[in-house]
């Protein structure tokens, strides 16, 4: 028991890194996703094709490869671009590249969710808004967006949990600098020290489970607030479906 508690303490600084990666990339990914979803629904052929292609490419390839690709791309620009500008310590830092790639990745997955929700917005409501003489931006702000976010929220919750799980592979693809270790690297290093796979990996798993539950709880609260106009809103599904 004592051992277990010290173990929990050892992992506490590590979970901060996972949380940092998730919290840094969620808002940016959200904004990117809204743009991409609107782009995928756009009538402009160029924008439509580009958003479609982007979403397909980033959903169809492993995050692990995306990490390697973007990091090595950034490395190859190092001598030519980053070094002369004097920002190479910052651009090549895992704490920058990590959220960058996670944002690009989650942007694509979330955009697909938002696009699905956008297509599910009731047609009649949009027609009613147009009949009222609302401009396009008014339609979006007052009719489409509120519908969209309510439809997409449960799936978006799952996506956020998956994003948090995806932070586990950041440091397998990027270099570990000093003591900046996330849960997986901590578990692996402790395992290599005393070969106790069951203890170290279970504690890391516990941390992941705990944060996932907190995310479900917080996003459930937001969902309740979003659905407060409904008499008894449809229950939020806690079990993630097979997204991703």
């Amino acid at each position: 028991m004592d051992r277990f508690l010290t173990e929990l303490g050892l992992f506490a600084p590590a979970v901060v890194f996972n949380l940092y990666f998730a919290i840094a990339s969620i808002p940016l990914g959200f904004i990117l996703a809204v743009c991409l979803a609107l782009g995928k629904a756009s009538d402009n052929v160029l924008i439509n094709r580009l958003s479609r292609g982007y979403i397909y490419a980033f959903r169809g390839s492993p995050l692990f490869i995306q990490f390697f690709m973007i990091y090595s791309l950034a490395l190859s620009f190092n001598v030519g671009v980053w070094k002369p500008m004097g920002i190479s310590w910052w651009v090549l830092h895992p704490l920058f590249i990590g959220p960058l790639v996670l944002t690009l990745n989650t942007g694509a997955y979330t955009a697909e969710i938002f696009y699905g929700a956008l297509r599910a917005v009731p047609r009649g409501e949009i027609e009613a808004a147009r009949a009222y003489g609302m401009s396009r931006s008014q339609q979006f702000r007052q009719v489409i967006w509120p519908n969209l976010i309510r439809l997409a929220w449960p799936a978006y919750t799952n996506e956020v949990v998956f994003l948090f799980h995806a932070t586990a592979i950041v440091y397998f693809a990027l270099p570990v600098i000093g003591q900046q270790k996330d849960l997986m690297i901590t578990a692996k290093e402790l395992f290599e020290r005393d070969y106790n796979a069951f203890l170290h990996f279970s504690v890391a798993a516990l941390y992941f489970l705990a944060v996932s539950l907190v995310v479900f709880f917080l996003f459930g609260l937001v969902y309740r607030r979003l659905m407060r106009h409904m008499p008894a809103g449809p229950r939020m599904r806690y079990a993630p479906s097979w997204w991703r």
Partner: peptide
């Protein structure tokens, strides 16, 4: 089905072979 989906796939992917070997 709920526990395995609740932890990252990488974690289980690394844990199972190591634990099996041990």
């Amino acid at each position: 089905s709920s526990i395995v989906r609740g932890v990252p796939d990488v974690l289980f992917f690394l844990f199972f072979p190591l634990a099996f070997e041990q």
